[in-house]
């Protein structure tokens, strides 16, 4: 079985799905001839032609609005937004139209589109190229939000996102685009949306993360072995809908939790997860849940990026804090 990085795994998923389903059309800036700035759509236009891999003008609202119209009338568009910071002009289409068409048409029309976008920090990119806006998207009813953490996960989750009858925002953590190689099978397999992954079992404390933060959480768990702390790590995979059962079950077992996300703390997804735990597992809690997050600031340049991004050291400190409560 081939060992692929995340870019290659996503490319493979797109290629296989496009072969299987000729309703799939990829569109975005530089996705065709250039193959995308991160080369995720490399070779797709050569294989499937210009009608199925469309180079668009530089106009994000136009790209996403077009994808919406295509999806309502029977196609399966996969739009690429080049960097997550460029998604903000599209929020009008996403919030005011894409997320509402099923509801607005009393369930008659669906909008089976995928918006893929590289997201998050850690590659020393400047502003507009390092944001983590997943909570903003997850706040919108009718939209699903998916964030893979490894190449294998990325392929399986993308296949499910493409086949899902609802609109999906698929955020690709660009920091680990090429950082991890693992075996990724050819042919179809899928990972269901809305189902978290128990990455590592542990009995003392639950660490909940997604995207690039899963690797940081695992590294922290490894370090904490020296302190005889047995860490359970959950990869959320789908931010919306959220798998509250898996989270609650783990907290009921460990009684302690730490949530890790790159996005700013205030109104971040960590707050929502804590509320869910309070609703479903309050009496199991041995300590208040800790959050390890970015700060409430614009994501800065590399000289201070390491200070902003959660790392194993900060995660381990938070774990020790909840253990010693």
């Amino acid at each position: 079985m081939a060992k692929l990085n995340m870019v290659e795994a996503i490319n493979l998923a797109l290629r296989e799905e496009m072969e299987r389903d000729d309703r799939i059309v990829v569109l975005g800036e530089d996705v065709g001839k250039e193959g995308g700035v991160f080369r995720v759509t490399d070779g797709l236009q050569a294989k499937f032609g210009k009608d199925r891999v469309i180079d668009t003008p530089l106009a994000e609202t136009g790209i996403v609005g077009t994808a919406f119209g295509m999806a309502v009338y029977g196609l399966r568009p996969i739009a690429e937004i080049q960097f997550e910071g460029f998604i903000f002009p599209c929020l009008d289409q996403i919030n005011n139209h894409i997320g509402r068409i099923r509801n607005r048409s009393r369930g008659r029309f669906t909008c089976p589109l995928v918006i893929r976008s590289p997201y998050g920090g850690g590659i020393h990119a400047p502003e507009h190229h390092s944001d983590s806006p997943e909570a903003i998207l997850a706040h919108i009813p009718g939209i699903k939000v998916v964030i893979p953490s490894t190449p294998y996960e990325a392929k399986g989750l993308l296949i499910s996102s493409i086949r899902d009858p609802d609109p999906v925002i698929f955020f690709e953590p660009k920091r680990i685009y090429r950082a991890i190689r693992e075996e990724v099978p050819e042919g179809e397999y899928s990972i269901p949306l809305g189902k978290a992954r128990l990455v590592q079992e542990g009995k003392d404390v639950t660490v909940i993360a997604w995207g690039a933060m899963v690797r940081e959480a695992l590294n922290a768990a490894e370090q904490l072995k020296a302190d005889k702390i047995d860490v359970e790590v959950i990869d959320l995979r789908t931010i919306s809908p959220i798998d509250s059962e898996t989270i609650a079950a783990s907290i009921r077992k460990t009684g302690r939790g730490v949530i890790v996300h790159e996005a700013a703390k205030t109104c971040g997804l960590g707050a929502e997860i804590i509320a869910l735990i309070n609703e479903k597992a309050l009496l199991s809690l041995q300590a208040p849940i800790e959050r390890v997050t970015g700060f409430d600031i614009p994501v800065p340049l590399p000289k201070t990026e390491h200070y902003y991004l959660p790392n194993p050291k900060r995660i381990a400190l938070a774990v020790k804090k909840v253990m010693s409560f």
Binding site: E29, D30, E34, D55, T56, P57, L58
Partner: peptide
């Protein structure tokens, strides 16, 4: 060019 897209393609 708009990034890699030639003018005749984008308008």
């Amino acid at each position: 060019y708009a990034e890699s897209t030639p003018q005749w393609v984008h308008q």
